[in-house]
Simulated scan of single mutants.
Amino acid sequence: MPTPPPTGPLVTRDSLAEGLRSLGVQPGETLLVHSSLSALGWVNGGAVTVVLGLLDALGPDGTLVVPTQTGDLSDPALWSNPPVPEEWWAAIRATMPAYDPLVTPSRGVGVIPETVRTWPGAHRSAHPQTSFAALGPRAAALVDGHAPDCRLGERSPLAQLERTGARVLLLGAGFDACTSFHLAEYRIPTPLVEVGRPAPGGAWETVPEVSITSDRFDELGHDFERDRPVVRGRVGAADARLFPVADAVAYAERWLPVHRPREEGLFAPARPAPRRRP
């Protein structure tokens, strides 16, 4: 069958930057972006065009931050999409390459964050499973100091983004992708879990971590934008939302203990690792 023609709208670097400015993105600000390339329409130049448009809207004094998570650097015993045979687990743990911020690709967060990660001048944080990458004058200050035993808490870039007045841009992504909500999980009574991952030198290490999950983040986001000022609009074909990191964290701190209490059992050890490519 012939390939169907692309659906629009046609998105260019200039039209994307103009759409972001119309939404309310300000030159010089710091923006944490969660994105979906396919939601934007037909983007001439793909992810590179999106990054260029974001940088144009932010200007030379602005800073772009994206999640560059690597959930596949995790214990194969927890993999479920798909699982692997139990008899493989020991060999996988013994041979899995350790995290290297310069070469380890992001996984499960989309092509736009991976494009930022490899952009000239990008800085990337040191956490082996929940890193962030950033471009701009505040990039290094935001991602440096990401503690290896603090995925998304007080010693992660999320807390730095909150303190410095950064905003979140959901660009074709839903509230289930909003990592800022996870910072609230570190500020309410939450169980600790043992998290396994590869370590430098071919070792396997296990560290205690706060249990995090995105369960019910879509409901949390629905209530958040009902009760708090969230800028909404469209960029290309994508629904877009813009709001302060600090507002999202503060709202989640109040919402989670009421709507997702510990006894529900929803504080899972970790999000299941993404499907591994053969």
Rank of each mutant, 00 (worst) to 15 (best):
L10R: 13
L10D: 03
V11R: 09
V11S: 07
T12N: 03
T12E: 08
T12A: 07
R13F: 00
R13L: 01
R13S: 01
D14A: 14
D14M: 01
S15M: 00
S15D: 00
S15Y: 00
A17M: 01
A17L: 00
G19P: 07
R21K: 11
S22M: 05
S22V: 12
V25R: 05
G28C: 10
E29K: 05
L31M: 03
L32H: 11
L32A: 08
H34E: 06
S36W: 04
S36V: 02
L37F: 03
L37V: 04
S38A: 13
S38V: 07
L40G: 03
L40M: 05
G41W: 06
W42P: 00
N44D: 12
N44E: 14
G45C: 03
G46Q: 14
G46C: 11
A47H: 07
A47S: 15
T49F: 00
V50A: 10
V50Y: 12
V51Q: 02
L54I: 00
L54V: 01
L55C: 06
D56E: 14
D56V: 03
D56P: 00
D56H: 07
D56S: 11
P60N: 13
G62A: 05
G62R: 06
T63I: 01
T63W: 04
L64Q: 02
V65N: 06
V65S: 05
V65K: 05
V65A: 08
T68Y: 11
T70A: 15
D72F: 15
D72S: 13
D72M: 14
L73V: 14
D75W: 09
P76R: 14
P76Q: 14
P76K: 13
L78A: 08
W79H: 06
N81C: 09
N81T: 15
N81Q: 15
N81H: 15
P82G: 14
P82E: 13
P83D: 08
P83C: 08
V84P: 03
E87L: 09
W88M: 12
W88P: 02
A90P: 00
A91E: 15
A91G: 06
I92S: 07
R93D: 03
R93Y: 05
A94Y: 02
T95H: 14
M96W: 07
P97D: 10
P97R: 12
A98C: 12
A98T: 11
A98Q: 13
Y99W: 14
D100Y: 06
P101R: 14
P101E: 09
P101Q: 13
V103N: 08
T104E: 09
S106T: 15
G108R: 08
G108P: 05
G108V: 08
G108Y: 08
V109A: 06
V111E: 12
I112G: 05
I112E: 04
E114S: 13
E114T: 05
T115N: 02
R117T: 02
R117S: 04
R117V: 02
T118A: 07
W119D: 04
P120Y: 10
G121L: 11
R124Y: 07
S125L: 10
A126V: 12
A126H: 09
A126I: 08
H127N: 15
Q129A: 13
T130A: 12
S131W: 09
S131Y: 11
F132R: 11
